[in-house]
Amino acid sequence: MQEKKLLDTVMLAGELMLSGGAEVYRVEDTMNHMLKRSGYQDAEVIAFVTGIFVTLSDPQKETLTLTRRIRQRGTNINRIYRVNDISRRFCCDSMSVDDAYAELKEIQAEVLYSPLMKVIGTLSVPPCFSPMFGGNALDFFACALVGVCLAIADRLCRRIRLNDFCSSACGSFVVAFSALLINRYLLKAANSDVMIISSIMPLVPGVTFTTAIRDVLNGDYSAGTARILEASVIALAVAAGVGGGMMLFRTL
C-alpha cells in the first residue's frame, strides 16, 4: 500500500533530521511538505526531541498514525543537508516514494569522515581554539599535546561503547588531568586555564544549548526545554570530569 510506504518514508526523513540536531520547526516543516503528496485531507506532524508522531486523516479513508521514539541524538549536518535535498526533489514530484525511501536508508548508514579524520579533527580543535581564548604560542603547543590525549581517550571510549554521559566525563577528566600534568612537568609557563577551556570545546554542548533557545523562540517549548536539559546533563558530565581530574591531580 502506497500510503503506508509514504508514511514510513516521511517518518524516516524526520527521524534522520531530528537525530542530526535540526531545529524542530524545520523537521515539522519538511515532513508536512512531503506529506502533501499523500492525497489525504489532513496531515498532522508533532515532533519532540525524543519522538515524532504523524497522523494522516480523511473522512473517506482509514486514519493512519505512526509513532517513532528517537533515542540517538547528536549534530550531523550531512543528514540535515541530504534529507533537505531529497525532500526538495520529492516535493516537486521528480522522485518516487520507493526511491526516496532507498536514498534515506542510504543516508542513515552514511559516514562522511573516516575514524582517522575524526581523530585528526578532535586533536586539532584545542590548539586552533586556544588563540581565541587569549593563549599564546606556548599555549598552542600545550593544547596540541592535550588534544592528542583527548583524541586517544575519545577513541578508547568509542571502542568500549561507553554511553554519552560517561564518555564526556571521561574525555574531560583526561583533559583536565593531562593539562595539569603538562603544565607542571613539561611547559611550566603555559596557562592551564586556557589549556583546559580550549580542550573541552569538542565536548561542551554549546550548539545544543543554542538550538534549544532557538526552539523556544520558535514556540516549540517542549523540544526547547528537553534540549536545555540535555545540554545541562552533558555540561554536568564535562564539569564533573574536569573537577575529578583536578582533584586527582591535587592528591598526587
Partner: peptide, 28 residues
C-alpha cells in the same frame, strides 16, 4: 542547501560552551 549548514558552523566561535561548563563547574 539548508541554512543550518552554515549557521551551526558560523556560530561555533561565539557559542556559550565555556560559560555553560563554568556554570556547572562552580555549582559543583
Amino acid at each position: 542547501a539548508p541554512m543550518t549548514v552554515f549557521l551551526v558552523s558560523g556560530f561555533l566561535p561565539v557559542v556559550p560552551g565555556t560559560a555553560i561548563y563554568r556554570c556547572v563547574y562552580y555549582l559543583l
